[in-house]
Design a protein around this nucleic acid. Structure first.
Lengths: 218, 218, 218, 218
DNA sequence: CATGAATGAGCTTTCATTCAT
DNA sequence: GATGAATGAAAGCTCATTCAT
C-alpha cells in the first residue's frame, strides 16, 4: 500500500507518477522495470519515490489493483445489464467494451496482460494471495450461470472453457494492437472493422457451445 | 548463431548444455535466466560458455530456433497427412500432438510459450526480425487452404482466427499443466480426460466457424 | 548546541524529545540511530527537529552532556561526603550509587556506556575535543587525592588505575544487566545479591592497592 | 564462509584484502564499514569482492574468526604452560602476551575489541550463535580451575570476576594505545614501562582475590 | 514556528561479459 | 579450447538534511 504521502500529492503529480510507472511496467514487465527510469521519466527524486511507496513491489501491487479496478469500472455498465442479456450478447459486450478500454488505455492493458500471461512468475502468486481476483473469474461465474439457464451446453468443462474465453479475449486485444500497428490504420476506421471481427468471434463461440445446435453433429 | 566451437563439442556435452539452458529459460523467462546458473547446472566454465555463444541472446535465439524445429518435427507426421484430413480433423490432431509433445517436453513447452506470451518483449521483435516463423504461421496457412476448399467460412479474417486458434492451443496446454498440478492427477488417467476436452474444443470450433452450419442463425 | 527554539519548548515536549532520542541512541548506538525513528517516536515533524538541533551530532552532544550531568548529579550526594569517607568506602558508594542509577535509568546508562566503549569512534574525539570530561576523570582526581592521603600506594600509575577502575565500574553495570536478563530475576532480590558482589569487588580492590597490606608480599 | 575463489587467490592479494578489511572494520565498526572503501583501499573491483565473499557479514565473520584464531595462537605458548604456572602468573603472562599481540597487531585488536564492546549489537549474537567462543570464556575456565586448586578464594562469583578480568584486559590494551598515542612515546621504551604496569595490576588482583590474605581484614 | 515533502549521495548487491592463463 | 577470476555498470533502497509553505 502506498504511503500517506503519495495520496497527499497533487492530483497531477500523482497521475504523472502513475502514468510513468504504468508505461514502464508495460514496456519492460515486472523484473526489468527500473525505478531509476521511472523517477527520471516523471522528474522526481529517487528518495521521493520511496516516500510514496514501500518498494517496487508495493508500487506494482498498487498499480495492478488500480488498473484492475479501472477495468472493472469500465465493464460495470455492461455487467449491470447482465440480467437482460443472454450469455453471448453479454460476452460480446464485454469483449467490445474490453477492446474500447484497451484502445483508450493501451499502456494499462499491456501492463495488465503481462501479468495475465506470466502466471508462472513469483509475483503472480503473491498478488493472487493478496486477494485480487482476475478477470477470468468473471467468465467462470457467468458461464456457470449460463449453463444453469440452459443457454450453454452442460457437457462442457466450465473451467476449461472460461479459461479459453479469457484467452480469446486477451488474444483479441493483442491482435487488435498488432494489426493496427502493422497496418498503421486510422484508429476510427480500423475500430469499426474490429467490431465485425468480434461479432464473428462471438458468433462462432455461440454456435459452438450454445445449446441450440441442431447442426452440431460431428 | 553459436560459434564453431559449440558444434565441435561431443554430442553429450552439447545436449547437456542445451538441456540446462532450456530448463533455465523455462523456469525464469529470458530476463531472469542466469548464465551463471546455467553453467553451474551443466558444469562448464563461465568462460567456455562465451566460447560457444556470442552472448545470452545468441544462446536464446539458438534455443528458440531449435525448440521450434523440434516442435515442427513433432507435428510433421500430422502435417504430412494434411491432404487426407479435413481442416478440423487436422486441427484436432495438431492440438493433440501438441499436448502430447508438451507432456513429453514440459521444459521446452514452457520456454516456447514464454516467448509466445511476451510478444511485447524487446527480444521478441529481434527474433521475428531474424526470421523465425512462429507456430501461428502454420495455422494461417492451413486456414487459408481450408477456406479455399470450402471447409471454412470465407467471411472470416484468417489472420484473426488463426491468431485465436494458436492462442487457444497455447491456452489449452497451459490449462492442462495447471489442472494436472492442482489435481495432482495420475498423468495417464488425466490425459485421457484431456482428449475429450480437446474433442469438445474442436467441436465448438467446427460448428462455430465451419461452413455447414444449418443451425448457425443468430 | 541546541537552538533557541528548543529551549523555548514547553518542558513536557522537550522531555519527550529527549527521552525518545535517548532510547534511540541506547538501542542503536550513534550510527544506526535514526532521526526518522526519533521524530516518529515523539510525534514531532522532521522539519521541527532541525529547528531544534543543528544536526544529529548536535543532538547527540547535547544528550551526552545532559546525561553526564545527570549522572554527576546522582553521584553528588556521595561526592559531598567525600571528606568523611576513605577512598574505598567512597568508591564503594560510587559503584553502588552508579548501579542504582543504572537500574533506574537503563536507557541513559546504555547510551553513556556506548560512548565509553567506543572511544575509537570519530564522534568520541569530537566530544572530548569539545571539552566534556568523562566520569573517568572523577576517579583520577579522587585517586590522586587518596594517594596523597596515604590511603593508596604511591607506586601505582594513577592514570592507569583510574582507567581500570572506571572500566570495572562499567563492566559491573554491564554484568548486572546481563545477569538480570539471563536469570530473569526479580529486580529487588537480585539487587541485594549485587551489593555483596560489589562489596567483594571493593574488597579486592582495597587489599590490592591499599597501603596497609602486611600480607601483600608476592 | 568465503568462497573457493578467495582461497585460490595468491597469498599477497589475500592478505592485502584482509588487511584492508580489518583496518576498515577497526576504524568504523561493523555498520559504518563500507565495502566500497574496502575495495578501493585494496584496489579490487566491487564485483570481485562478491566473488570472494557472500556478503558483508560473511567477510566480517571470516575476519572475526581469523582474528580470534590468531589471538588464540598468540596465547597458545602461554596456555600450554598452564600446568606450571599458578593462576596469577598465568594471568600475568596472558595479559603481557595480549599486550604484545596488540602492539604488533593494533588493527586486529581494535577490530576484536569493537565486538567485545558491542555485545548489544545484533551481529554479536549471530556470531556467538555460530559458535565462536570469546576470550572471556578462557578466563572463566581457568578461574574455576584456580578456585578448585585453592589459589583463589571460593567466595567469589566466578562469572562476575572473569567478566571483570576480561574487562581489565581489554581496558589495559586500550590504555596502552591511548597513552602511547598521547605521549608519542618510543614504542620500545614505552613497552617496558607497561610491563611494570601490568605487574602492578596483577599484584593487586592477586592480593585481592588470592587465598593467602592474612591481611585481608577490611 | 511547524510541517512534511524533496533531495541525492551513498549504500550493498547482482550479473552479463571480458580477460589472462 | 578450457578455465575461472576480474570487471563495472546498474540495480533497489536508505537516510540525514534541506526546502517551501
Amino acid at each position: 500500500m502506498p504511503k500517506e504521502t503519495f495520496y497527499n500529492l497533487p492530483d497531477k503529480k500523482r497521475q504523472l507518477i502513475v502514468g510513468s510507472a504504468i508505461s514502464e511496467f508495460a514496456a519492460f514487465g515486472y523484473d526489468k522495470a527500473s525505478i531509476t527510469r521511472i523517477v527520471n521519466k516523471c522528474g522526481i527524486a529517487k528518495g521521493s519515490f520511496y516516500q510514496y511507496f514501500e518498494d517496487k513491489k508495493d508500487l506494482y501491487f498498487y498499480l495492478v489493483t488500480k488498473v484492475s479496478e479501472e477495468k472493472v469500472r469500465a465493464l460495470e455498465p455492461v455487467m449491470q445489464k447482465r440480467g437482460q442479456y443472454d450469455f453471448f450478447t453479454l460476452i460480446r459486450e464485454l469483449f467490445l467494451e474490453g477492446l474500447k478500454f484497451a484502445a483508450r488505455n493501451p499502456q494499462i492493458t499491456l501492463m495488465g496482460d503481462w501479468l495475465f500471461k506470466n502466471k508462472g512468475h513469483p509475483i503472480y502468486n503473491e498478488i493472487v494471495g493478496v486477494g485480487l481476483q482476475s478477470a477470468q473469474n468473471i467468465y467462470t461465474e457467468i458461464l456457470e450461470e449460463a449453463i444453469k439457464k440452459g443457454q450453454v451446453r452442460d457437457d462442457i468443462d466450465p473451467g476449461f472453457i472460461s479459461h479459453s474465453i479469457s484467452s480469446l479475449s486477451v488474444s483479441a486485444v493483442e491482435y487488435y494492437f498488432q494489426a493496427r500497428e502493422e497496418k498503421k490504420a486510422r484508429v476510427r476506421k480500423f475500430d469499426e472493422g474490429m467490431i465485425d471481427t468480434i461479432d464473428l468471434l462471438i458468433d462462432f463461440l455461440k454456435n459452438g457451445i450454445g445449446t441450440k445446435g441442431k447442426g452440431r453433429q460431428q
